[in-house]
């Protein structure tokens, strides 16, 4: 079954984005709608334009290699008032460790500890538990230590489309 008209295709994609709780990739949307990937891309861009219009509370963002409908940050107070989400910000140590993994992945625990100068066991456990990192094999060296990399959940948490979107590593960053 194929969707013939572009407006129908766009509506179908909108419906899929609405029910999905995670970012949908172009290949996935293409597979479900039987539309070509280029067409899907075009329709997504059309939808983005529609949602970018004035007076909308939701937006269509490109995140973690996919597209996802989400609320606009301007209206966060209302969302929080209604749903009262539990805020669980990452600790400073966890964030530093995550930054190291993000920029140096795949990386072993020993390598992380070498940069930070302190033990990373607990922080790694926290990051693993929150599914921000996962193990991606072992380094072919003495002891074959486990290698860690970031997950799509990491990209989602920081609203990144891919690792290439990470802020650039520059030495001009204000250090203080």
């Amino acid at each position: 079954m194929s969707v013939l008209f572009s407006q129908e295709g766009r509506a179908a994609i909108e419906a899929l984005l609405f029910v999905a709780s995670e970012p949908l990739s172009i290949p996935t949307l293409s597979k479900v709608t039987h539309l070509g990937e280029e067409v899907v891309q075009e329709l997504l861009e059309e939808l983005q334009v529609i949602y970018a219009g004035e007076g909308r509370g939701i937006q269509l963002v490109q995140v973690a290699q996919g597209y996802q409908l989400c609320t606009r940050p301007e209206y966060h107070i209302y969302v929080e008032k209604l749903l009262q989400p539990v805020n669980s910000k990452l600790s400073r140590a966890a964030l530093e460790c995550l930054a190291i993994i993000a920029y140096q992945q795949p990386i072993t625990r020993a390598e992380i500890e070498k940069i930070r100068g302190v033990k990373a066991d607990r922080v790694l456990a926290t990051l693993l538990e929150r599914q921000l990192i996962h193990t991606t094999g072992r380094k072919e060296t003495i002891g074959r230590p486990i290698l860690y990399s970031t997950t799509p959940e990491f990209l989602r948490l920081f609203g990144l489309n891919s690792l290439a979107d990470l802020p650039h590593q520059t030495n001009e960053l204000n250090i203080g």
């Binding site: 609320t71 964030l95 802020p167």
Partner: peptide
């Protein structure tokens, strides 16, 4: 870089998904 990520985390924390 961790500080940069923290900023992003905070900004993105205001965006909710279903």
């Amino acid at each position: 870089l961790a500080a940069v990520l923290r900023n992003r985390e905070e900004a993105w924390g205001k965006v909710y998904t279903r």
